[in-house]
Design a protein around this nucleic acid. Structure first.
Lengths: 210, 210, 210, 210
DNA sequence: GATGAATGAGATTTCATTCAT
DNA sequence: GATGAATGAAATCTCATTCAT
């Protein structure tokens, strides 16, 4: 039976920035997210970021050791938010694999809608990361992926899911859910929660639920 | 019953370049695809492209009016290949919606595997396109998406598919299939055709094919 | 009778640059004037200017948004100097139209001798100005021309001048006076003040004085 | 007394090009005149010229050994036309210095109106000439200037002119007459012949013709 | 600690000219 | 003889980053 309240995890858009003591650093991160989501890492200059934040490039270098470090920060915090939200949703769901899949799909899609720009950057700018940072980010992405793997494998074991290829289905589902960040428009016809519910349903179909 | 031979459309990797009379232009496109797939449009310099093609930047400008025009060419040809392969697969499949979905998923995934770099560029560098080119490319992407929409809606009408949200399922499926370009490695454990077959099966599940 | 002291307004060559707070910007303007007067706007590279000023091209772009903007600045300031000197000379002269014509010819020629290079640029590089800047500069040139028009028309009304075509004579005179910038050499046989006096006399003849 | 018919020498606009055997070379010269008059020598590329002539740069190099040589050709032919027209007008005029001055002013202004673009180039692109060509062109310009010098000095000797500074007056007059090339617009309010007559009159005033 | 100047490398693009064919 | 490709230098301008003050 369906969980009564799929309640997708609410993620404030400002999480990424919230705990920065220095408001300037926060403004710089917000500005970087804004402009990098639009033009990409290499398409964004340090001056672009600074002027979007209302300061100068020199100030940026006072808060971040490099443009690269700023990217790592954005990706890292974004993935922390994603993983945390997904794990929390998983843990709050009951033991039913279907409920669990609904929960983590809800969290994953929810974060990709609420932190759309951060997610976009986190997915498309990995290639712009230098090796050290890239390793970190890729590892965290694997953590997220493995949450899906586990839930689906668990559902197979309990005969709640029935897909011929659990790992591929997990990848299939996360990719589809991740992609919402690249096309969703909050002012469009589809409400956030409605979209989440639909993707939850489709994901369950994709893993052969029932 | 399942079609015995899902036979994914074979797409030669060189389609994009094949019919160029001028070998230099073809080499430049190939080089651009190679290096832009790795570093992105803005992360790739005209000199990078030229030297990857074994020539100079001035030669590039003899064949393409700008770096931007080169990007448009790559995206445009890539989408032409994709749409053509998908339509052809669709037309060769029988009237059964399941066969048709298998066919177009096979074509879509196949092209994204065989022209992995072109696909990567076509999906991640749309933001780097200037308005005119972007409109063209977005329109062609819509064409591709509508092929999936039609097949799935048709399957719903014939009661072969049963998803609560056909349009969302179509988007879900294409996004998942598109994503293979970003992670598949030909030397990995998963063979090209095997992957295609798996994604065909998952896609059918996702649309509620019984 | 002749005014005793035609004393043309002395304009130091550095007026254009004098009141710039930033010495680097001033040096760049001076260098640009120097080299553009010799080779023209399009014949002068940004590097030429920078190296004549003892800096790099990047520094130039720190002070001026473009090479074009630098040209506008030079032309604009040059014309301000010219107009101001001419108006001041006019106002210091008595009410006699002949005195006034002597005064403004003296100022016009004087500025074209003292700021020879700026004048050269201001006259020959108008075609290199983009529309916005060109409109500004052409308007200021008209202001200068109208000073001559007014003085000569006034002299006609008072029957001090007698030319068949006052407006053409005004154009005739300013063109002749402007041209000194293109051939005068300070080390040549003709002294600055002597040249001015001669042109004052010829200008009065040209408008049919007496 | 006035000469009855100052009839300024009619100069066909195509003189410069007329006697070129090869129509392509002629078209290239015409195109170069057109576009260099607008943008200057350094502001004009060889491709600009070629495409304005409807050919390619390679063809240009088939007819002219360099862009520089093309400029020399234009300037040289332009001055030949000017000098020839001026000498012819001088010789056709009677012995009266006033008639002679009218004649050469008419020729000078006429050529500068009829071959406006060639004249513009000849006057403003001397700095773009390399030493050899420049010497040639400057020498020819001196020839033209000396015609004016002689006529005015002759008028002084015969007491027909009365200027304090004959040589300066000559320079004054030629500069004013030359300048018409830079502002005259054939569709403007002032007719070609009317302008010439006015400048003849003003020139006579300028040299103190009583 | 914050700011404007500086920096040198490198971005995209164009140049005049030459060379095979 | 005419044409398209090629060339290497140089054009304008921007880059990430550092340094005095």
């Amino acid at each position: 039976m369906r969980a009564e309240t799929p309640t997708p995890v609410p993620v404030r858009p400002s999480v990424l920035v919230r705990d920065s003591d220095e408001p300037t650093a926060a403004a710089l991160i917000a500005a970087a997210v804004e402009v990098m989501a639009r033009n990409g890492y290499h398409g964004t200059s340090v001056r672009d970021i600074a002027s979007a934040a209302g300061t100068s490039a020199a100030v940026l270098y006072h808060h971040f050791e490099s443009k690269q470090r700023l990217l790592v920060t954005i990706c890292d915090r974004g993935l922390d938010v994603l993983i945390h939200a997904t794990e929390e949703a998983h843990d709050l769901a009951g033991p039913d694999p279907a409920d669990r899949l609904r929960a983590i799909v809800g969290a994953h899609v929810g974060v990709h809608l609420d932190s759309q720009r951060e997610s976009l950057i986190g997915n498309s700018e990995i290639r712009a990361l230098e090796p050290a940072g890239r390793a970190l980010i890729v590892a965290k992405r694997d953590v997220q992926q493995r949450i899906f793997d586990r839930v689906i494998r668990d559902g197979m074991r309990r005969l709640v899911f029935a897909t011929g290829h659990p790992e591929d289905a997990a990848r299939f589902v996360t990719a589809a859910c991740t992609s919402v960040a690249s096309w969703y428009h909050p002012d469009g016809p589809l409400g956030r929660n409605e979209l989440i519910e639909r993707y939850q349903a489709i994901a369950l179909d994709a893993v052969g639920h029932r």
